[in-house]
Nucleic acid binder design. Structure first.
Lengths: 273, 273
DNA sequence: TTGCTCCTCACGTCACGTGAGGTGGC
DNA sequence: TTGCTCCTCACGTCACGTGAGGTGGC
């Protein structure tokens, strides 16, 4: 009727180490401890408490929560509260894991489809708040050949107005809106100004770009060759089960007029679940 | 074009501590380290490698796996292998979490249904291998009133034969089979004998109980009052999404003829997913 | 001088698994 | 005496977060 730790462990199908751990935490104290040897002695009847402990652990509660439920003869409301919380946590984590699974499967499909290394280093992130001084104009369509000349003209004007305002341009940014169904694009070109003041001259405005969820990829090299990076980004979004929620932003983290191969551009596409 | 750790961390939306960690593990080395100060200096272009690292982390790979994939210019097969493995792991964990969710929801429903504390300390486990010497007989039905007399007679015979064989009885066990549709039950009564020899006398046989999945609950007190424990067990099995895969076993871990309130009995029902 | 950023340890996380080193009863 | 079980530390796990204590440039 009284068992050593090894016997009780076999009875409950747990390790002696676990029983010592539960003893340390006060979750399941042996009925008595031999004073001379320190041996822990358990009664068979304590199997009931051990099973209750294991049942609660099986629900995914941590040992501190279990202690509360084992000790206090838990009020039914307390138990309900804990279980509701756990329920919500599990639903959350299952959702997260399923999203992760979709991303893994997307990568696998991408591997089958193309032989070209894939390694789409696409990342989901939330943008930083970004205050820019910008100007905008309508371009005939997407693609470097349509946007390049328009953006260049705009950047000149914006720089001009920033300097005129006594400020200094920060990160260089472009972003786009689809005007209508006619295929034209409104292109916005600007520079981060943080908390500097830039006066609005009717053409150059100060704008806070909203904080949004985006899929992001880093493009190295000339912006002329950006198209495959965009294709990767769009494929990733679709395959991963997200959907487009707007038009892209481009962040020119590093720019060399003389050697475009050194350029580093971040492409961001707004997404929603 | 060269950034301190704080600037690079902001650029990549990670913490400086993470960058130091990745440096320590050799996942992402700064481009150079100031010899005098130990300052880590990064180039903007390293953002590409950081994003790739984050993308792989997002798939749930650990940092050691990521190191392999970042360094070796991974063979496409290696990458595919890792992703397939991850896919399987995620599917497994989602399945486990969903089963857990069902158990949590079962407990919540049980809380609503009954006011009587619930706290069904039911546990899913795999039985231990169990070799018993046993005898069997047909009883008119389930329930203590039907089984009690039959089992008592059987235990006498089995004990007798065990002692006669020079062995000593261990754990006391009962298990059941439904004979036919007539409501009768074949009851088996035995004692664990481990590796002792007990001779078969035509009525008492040595049997190895198979190792199976069971839902288990511990009943304290007289076996007369076992019915509510069985009801709990059956409700738990159904609510948790398992199904019955046979008839019960009873393990009499502690037995007092004089004081049945001290008895400790484990009830096991075979289950399958 | 005060703030800010950077540096290198080093502890803590959660529920144990796994030795290391030693003791007591068959 | 050899085996077995028990004991108490104490490290390791995984990817960092969070001080502590100190330094260097604006």
């Amino acid at each position: 009727v009284v068992l050593t730790i090894g016997q009780f462990a076999r009875l409950g199908q747990v390790s002696p180490r676990m029983l010592r751990h539960y003893d340390d935490l006060g979750l399941l104290r042996p009925e008595k401890v031999e004073p001379s040897s320190g041996y822990r002695l358990y009664r068979v009847a304590q199997l009931a408490r051990l099973q209750r402990l294991l049942a609660l652990r099986d629900l995914g509660l941590n040992l501190e929560q279990i202690r509360d439920l084992l000790d206090d003869e838990p009020s039914i409301d307390q138990l309900r509260g804990m279980l509701r919380l756990r329920q919500a946590q599990i639903e959350q984590s299952v959702g997260d894991e399923l999203a992760r699974l979709r991303r893994v499967e997307a990568r696998l499909r991408a591997l089958e489809g193309s032989q070209h290394m894939s390694a789409s280093d696409v990342v989901l992130k939330t943008t930083q708040p970004l205050r820019i001084a910008e100007a905008s104009a309508v371009a005939p369509g997407f693609g470097p050949e349509n946007l390049g000349p328009v953006l260049n003209r705009l950047y000149g004007k914006v720089i001009d107005q920033i300097v005129r305002s006594g400020a200094r341009p920060g990160l260089c940014v472009a972003w786009y809106e689809e005007s209508e169904d006619d295929g034209t694009v409104t292109a916005h070109a600007g520079f981060e100004i943080k908390d500097q003041t830039v006066t609005d001259n009717g053409e150059v405005h100060v704008v806070d770009l909203p904080v949004i969820q985006v899929a992001s990829v880093v493009h190295r090299g000339s912006i002329e060759n950006v198209t495959p990076a965009y294709e990767t980004l769009l494929r990733w979004i679709e395959d991963s089960g997200y959907r487009l929620a707007g038009r892209s932003r481009e962040l020119y983290h590093e720019w060399h007029d003389d050697d475009p191969s050194q350029n580093v551009t971040e492409l961001q596409m707004p997404v929603a679940a």
